[in-house]
């Protein structure tokens, strides 16, 4: 296959450099857990989970132009499929991850097909995605099949096992697995954007009528993008369960999860390859910073000692500021400047 031009929508430059960048970043990050104290390691893993969710969301909503407010559906399907297979059937989380990705992709296809069949757009599409995620949450909460509101605890095993994706507390294993997953997600996004399907997807996002009139089936490429996006986000969910060893309907399907999938891309840059990663690096440590701040508050904030909420307030303020002042996000704005 020929590789014409550059990356569509990214100004036709810096294509292969991205692959190099992935390798370089990985090389730099691999020794990180060996030097970080355990508490910081947990933050680093959270950053990577954020990034994975954001990469998934960005594919569909940034590059595909279909604004999702219900990515919790895919995250939750990944989390629950992995947890159910492991707890009820003793299946390896890796298999669970694949199964979850397949199920999430199928669910994405279903939502997408219905939405596009009935020509839902803009706010209505966002509301529909939200409604589907909420429905899954309610079903999970009230279904004996998945333990109702109690959810699942991941059973502890002896020692550590990559196959069962379980490592002792403080082991760098979790970080390395998450890093590999994020690197894979960036690489998949990069490959997708360079492929014919990726170019068609961007064409449909930019102008659906024009793309159709050139022979591109908008429905087909929107569905493809949704399925891929759902699969990536579901992997984040599957990993989340293994790392925190617990899942319940709110943690998997709650509206907060959908918000957390949106934030990294919006902060970093919607519709850019690296935006979600940059956004995750900014967002991940926020709650630890505020928690530390409120555990030993300065004089002025002493009344707030031990209270929750400050971290989300910071997210929220950041979100508003970003949308109003830097709508292209941190990375997006920088990339734009560099191009001149």
């Amino acid at each position: 296959m020929t590789r014409p031009g550059g990356l569509p929508g990214l100004g036709g430059r810096g294509t292969r450099r991205n692959l190099l960048l992935i390798a370089l970043l990985c090389a730099v990050m691999i020794p990180l857990p060996l030097v970080l104290p355990p508490a910081q390691q947990a933050v680093a893993v959270r950053v990577l989970i954020f990034a994975l969710m954001g990469l998934g969301w960005n594919l569909m909503s940034g590059f595909g132009g279909m604004f999702s407010f219900g990515h919790a559906a895919y995250f939750g399907i990944g989390a629950y499929t992995g947890a159910w297979l492991l707890v009820e059937r003793g299946v390896s989380p890796w298999i669970g991850m694949l199964a979850g990705a397949a199920l999430a992709a199928a669910f994405g296809l279903l939502i997408g097909f219905l939405s596009f069949r009935y020509k839902l757009r803009g706010a209505y599409f966002a509301l529909a995605t939200f409604a589907f995620a909420e429905m899954l949450r309610l079903i999970a909460t009230n279904s004996d099949l998945v333990n109702r509101a109690q959810g699942y605890n991941v059973p502890l095993i002896q020692g550590s096992s990559l196959w069962m994706l379980q490592f002792p507390l403080g082991s760098p294993g979790y970080f390395w697995v998450a890093l590999a997953l994020v690197a894979a997600a960036v690489a998949v996004t990069w490959l997708f954007l360079r492929s014919r399907a990726g170019r068609f997807t961007i064409a449909v996002r930019d102008d659906e009528t024009a793309a159709e009139s050139l022979g591109v089936s908008a429905m087909r490429y929107k569905l493809l993008t949704m399925a891929l996006s759902a699969a990536i986000t579901s992997v984040a969910g599957a990993f989340y369960v293994q790392y925190y060893m617990f899942v319940d309907p709110d943690l998997a399907f709650g509206a907060n999860v959908s918000i957390q999938a949106i934030l990294p891309a919006v902060i970093g840059g919607v519709g850019t390859l690296w935006g979600p990663v940059v956004g995750a690096v900014v967002l991940g440590p926020l709650s630890d910073v505020t928690a530390t701040l409120l555990r030993n508050p300065p004089e002025a904030l002493s009344m707030l000692a031990g209270r929750a909420g400050l971290d989300v307030m910071l997210y929220a303020a950041l979100l508003i500021v970003m949308v109003l002042a830097l709508p292209k996000g941190l990375y997006g704005t920088l990339a734009e400047r560099r191009r001149g």
Binding site: P4, P8, G12, D206, D207, L214
Partner: peptide, 18 residues
């Protein structure tokens, strides 16, 4: 109705790729 985020070449390439 150009694909506004793409360059001219990328626009025409999409058409050729179909």
């Amino acid at each position: 109705r150009p694909f506004a985020s793409m360059t001219v070449r990328e626009n025409v390439c999409v058409a050729a790729l179909t």
